[in-house]
Design a binder for these strands. Structure first.
Lengths: 200, 200
DNA sequence: ATTATCTATAGATCTATAGATAATGC
DNA sequence: ATTATCTATAGATCTATAGATAATGC
């Protein structure tokens, strides 16, 4: 058991990081402090020396999730450059669908935030604004007068498709949702790039 | 305190109806049996003579919510005929946004269902299929080969926009989300029908 | 001496069950 | 006699706090 101030900073960061994942996976109310602390290798009693309340952790964890989304996108695609197409493809991939813990917090927490308190909703709203702006910029519609509206619609499609694909209990339907949304956003131009077996 | 079998049927139905509303408002885990029974005018102990388990209620309540959505749409718009446009306008209205308890359960429960058990996910999946079919039929795209995909996208836009509009803590942005989605789905043809004051 | 963490526990829920009570319905 | 509901409670969480323990850091 370490006790230095440096250890404390590390522990604090680890708790926030674990919370950011568990809130996305289990819902804001579904993750418990005891579980979080256990996974961080600590006991639940120590929690309140790191955070004044559970709500304070929720805010920090949400911010952490938003920041790491921005960082992921900042680092771009494997090749180094992030395009609208590469973002949409990654966002609407089965990989993202199956890993909500490290994925988009806007989609994962939408309905939880709708029932949450003032501060949480305010922080979430900021991220929605940033997401709309990022989509508009990426799609090269900064000058298009209809670009703003198209970006709002794109965010709705992306978050809606991800939510439905995660809820649905049939892999074929779930993939159809992801692919329909993807084809719509990419202008029907990506055909069957992700098929396991090329046809004919 | 009534004890007849007819009373029991009435109580059962009332519990399910209240649950259908509370699950949509508070989330599947957010509503408690004691609260439900209290609102039904009963004590919590009697719950298990109506349902074998909480999960059984969740299933019945979800089915009830799906049925009442279908009934609302079956009865159509005020004039009696339901069109794609009237459905979209009602769905993406501030009224629907502000009343999740009587609204679309597909949108309200998506993220809860993603974390739920087999039976709940299976029932939800059925309703997603029916919703896609209904949208395709209403939009008159039964014969259009791309109609299926368009209907899937429409459902994503509707559920996604509703979820984001409910989460966001700024009425202007929330309305922009609803209106952008609505204008997209209605082909930019509805201008400012819902404005409080006509311009100029 | 200070402080980061741990142990123990209070107080509030929540699901579920057992047994009592008071109606129904043969 | 049967049964729909109520009272009471067991057992499992969960948030939050108080006080003990064992390090750090002057």
């Amino acid at each position: 058991m370490g006790h230095s101030q440096e250890d404390k900073r590390g522990n604090h960061e680890r708790i926030v990081s674990i919370a950011a994942r568990q809130f996305r996976e289990r819902g804001i109310d579904g993750a418990s402090i005891a579980d979080l602390m256990k996974e961080a290798g600590l006991t639940h009693g120590g929690f309140y020396k790191h955070f004044a309340s559970r709500d304070e952790l929720v805010l920090e964890a949400m911010q952490h999730a938003f920041d790491s989304s921005a960082r992921q996108q900042g680092s771009g695609a494997p090749t180094g450059k992030l395009t609208f197409a590469s973002l949409v493809e990654a966002y609407l991939s089965p990989r993202h669908r199956d890993d909500p813990g490290t994925g988009c917090a806007v989609a994962a927490l939408a309905s939880d935030v709708g029932r949450a308190g003032r501060d949480v909703r305010s922080a979430y709203t900021g991220q929605v604004r940033r997401s709309i702006d990022a989509l508009r910029h990426l799609s090269g519609a900064d000058d298009d007068p209809d670009g703003r509206r198209a970006s709002v619609v794109a965010l709705c499609v992306m978050a809606g498709a991800l939510g439905l694909a995660r809820a649905v209990d049939d892999d074929a339907l779930s993939r159809e949702v992801l692919e329909s949304a993807s084809q719509f956003l990419l202008g029907q131009s990506d055909e069957d790039e992700n098929e396991d077996a090329p046809r004919a």
